[in-house]
Amino acid sequence: MPLQTAVDALADRLRALPQSTLARGSAAEALALARELAGRAERIEEPGREPRAFPDAGMFAVGDQVAVAGHDLVEAVRAAGDERELASAVELVRGAAVRC
């Protein structure tokens, strides 16, 4: 699935970034992405319910947070069969990858 491929590639890249790069904004960008992906998954799985707060686990955890949130969205999209959401999420991840 293109979304899973994009998420995995970005998560791996984030895990390999040096602290200085993470501190200059890549970690914040990745956390914002993880929060958006998690929120999208929750809105698909539980329509009408406000998404739960997504924690900031620190700059060294953002790669894992992107992976977990992205994989949750992959499963939600797969279950819902929402191709528009899939395409939108892939573009979101690719855009964040460029900014990171």
Rank of each mutant, 00 (worst) to 15 (best):
M1K: 11
M1V: 03
P2N: 06
P2F: 01
Q4E: 14
Q4H: 07
T5Y: 03
A6V: 01
A6M: 04
A6S: 15
D8T: 15
A9R: 15
A9L: 12
L10A: 03
L10N: 00
L10W: 02
D12N: 14
L14M: 06
R15W: 08
R15L: 11
R15F: 04
A16T: 09
A16I: 03
A16G: 10
A16S: 15
P18Y: 01
P18C: 07
Q19S: 14
Q19P: 06
S20M: 10
T21A: 13
L22T: 01
L22H: 02
A23H: 08
A23G: 04
R24Q: 13
R24A: 15
R24F: 09
G25E: 10
G25H: 07
A27D: 08
A27L: 08
A28F: 11
E29P: 02
A30E: 04
L31K: 04
L31N: 02
L31H: 15
A32H: 04
A32M: 10
L33N: 02
A34R: 06
R35M: 08
R35H: 07
R35D: 07
E36D: 13
E36I: 12
L37S: 01
A38T: 04
E42I: 08
I44S: 04
I44T: 05
E46K: 14
P47R: 09
G48E: 01
G48Y: 06
R49K: 14
R49D: 10
E50K: 13
P51W: 04
P51C: 08
R52E: 13
A53D: 13
A53M: 12
A53N: 09
F54C: 02
P55V: 03
P55G: 02
P55A: 07
D56C: 09
D56N: 15
A57R: 13
M59W: 03
F60E: 10
F60H: 12
F60T: 14
F60S: 13
A61T: 03
A61S: 12
V62T: 03
G63N: 09
D64T: 10
D64I: 07
D64V: 12
D64W: 11
Q65R: 12
V66D: 00
A67R: 15
A67Y: 08
A67G: 05
A69V: 05
A69G: 09
G70Y: 07
G70R: 06
L73K: 08
A76P: 10
A76N: 06
V77G: 03
A79H: 05
A80L: 03
A80H: 04
G81S: 05
E83L: 06
E83R: 07
R84S: 10
R84I: 11
R84E: 14
L86P: 01
L86F: 00
L86Y: 01
A87S: 08
A87K: 00
S88N: 09
S88H: 00
A89S: 15
V90F: 00
V90N: 00
E91N: 00
L92E: 02
L92Y: 00
V93T: 00
R94K: 13
A96I: 03
A97S: 14
A97Q: 08
V98K: 02
V98I: 12
V98N: 02
V98R: 13
R99I: 05
R99S: 10
R99D: 11
C100D: 02
